[in-house]
Amino acid sequence: MKKIAKQRRSRPDIPMASTSDIAFLLIIFFMVSTVFRKEQGMNITLPEAEATERILKRRNVSNVWVDKTGRTTVNDNLVKTDIVTSIMAERVIENPDLVVMMQADRDAAYGTVTDILEALKDARALKVTFATDYPKGQGG
């Protein structure tokens, strides 16, 4: 009886030593699964394709953005098609494995895209990937 009376004084204690462990685990998860955002890009709706495949090796990727009005952006700068050639020519010389991701809105006129493809051919950046989404209802 006396022992129980003494124990009522101590309050329940949740050990907080492990919160930092949990927090560091979360950090490591984010560190391996995300990349720093390098550019804003443009607000576009990508077209859907069933044959979409994941692109690994993100390091060699350069993005070219085309919105539905035909405006073209590289690295958040509005550019004309001939400037795309010079930018990509430089990049492909630095990195022969360069893959150019064509992020074009689904309603963009194909004429603009084909001009950019010609510019990429001139720049000798031949590895191109058309960015697409999985169709609705289909996962990765």
């Binding site: 984010f30 995300t34 720093f36 495949e53 990429l120 031949l126 058309f130 697409t132």
Partner: peptide, 14 residues
Amino acid sequence: TSIFSRDKGLKIVL
């Protein structure tokens, strides 16, 4: 400051 990488698409070699 970081984003989940979402590169996916259709590949082609020009």
